[in-house]
Design a protein around this nucleic acid. Structure first.
Lengths: 144, 144
DNA sequence: TGTGCATCCTAAAGTAACTTTAGGTGCAAG
DNA sequence: CTTGCACCTAAAGTTACTTTAGGATGCACA
């Protein structure tokens, strides 16, 4: 049996986060020591790691709850796989959008470095940003 | 002069978002018609688009506010460029993390599709997720 | 045995960036 | 003239946490 602090360390999250998951019904109410301190076992750790992993995929807590409740009942695969495929699409779209943003940022930075930061002319980065509604925006808008 | 609905459409955001920005001091209090309806001009549109663009870069509203306040005072470049460089690093890290997540998801999906979804054996996706603490996790943990 | 100091407890409030709701006004078209 | 859409304000709700307040516990060290 391990403490909540240990559990947090091993699952790479904070102590209040674990208590929060408990209050939301994602983590079970654990056993307690005489002192009242929570005592967790290996199963709790697995469950918490699973939750964190799903959160890495931006799965909302409600969905994770559903998934965890499905866990016992035979064939969660169809639904889980479908959800994961959806997540993969979202991830790809997000990557595309981020690449576009990175490109746009590089333009701004380069322009500043080669122009206004050298010459003491005024900087027009704000005008650029406000007017530069490129194809990137549509990608971003639809992906996020 | 355009309505708030028009402005929202052109800046690709919602009407309440604009009112929210106003309440946060990012958008100025606009002129009003006799009816009390807000009336915006071209400058307001530029400003809003600039704000949205910064939000695309995940710049927090407070930072955007600072930037907008710097706008008049000569040389915002140094600070802005530094911020953008930081954002670019964050974006790159995020892309790396997302690629790892996508890869991990593809493993799960492939495994289900070639195994339990074919054979009616039980699905071990949850066990996989709970135990598979690969190198990806560290990347994710540090990038987000 | 005391005495710090980290860790634990609960309950409640705060955070970011919006969205949603409730209850009402203005305006153009049929 | 009434139907329906866009607008108004103020307040509460959302998600996934984090932070704070005010105590209790556990453990190493003198």
């Amino acid at each position: 049996m391990i403490t909540i602090g240990e559990l947090a360390k091993r699952a790479n999250c904070t102590v209040p986060t674990i208590r929060y998951y408990e209050s939301m019904g994602l983590m079970p109410e654990p056993q307690r020591r005489e002192s009242g301190h929570r005592a967790y076992d290996r199963g709790d750790l697995s469950r918490l790691i699973l939750i964190r992993r799903c959160r890495d995929f931006d799965m909302p807590l409600e969905k994770i709850k559903d998934l965890l409740e499905m866990e016992g009942n035979g064939k969660p695969c169809q639904e889980t796989v479908a959800f994961f495929e959806t997540q993969r699409s979202a991830i790809k779209a997000r990557i595309t959008a981020l690449n576009e943003l990175d490109f746009t940022l590089s333009l701004y930075v380069n322009r500043c470095q080669s122009s206004c930061m050298q010459t003491d002319n005024g900087c027009d980065i704000y005008e650029q940003m406000a007017t530069d509604i490129s194809h990137a925006d549509k990608a971003v808008a639809s992906a996020l």
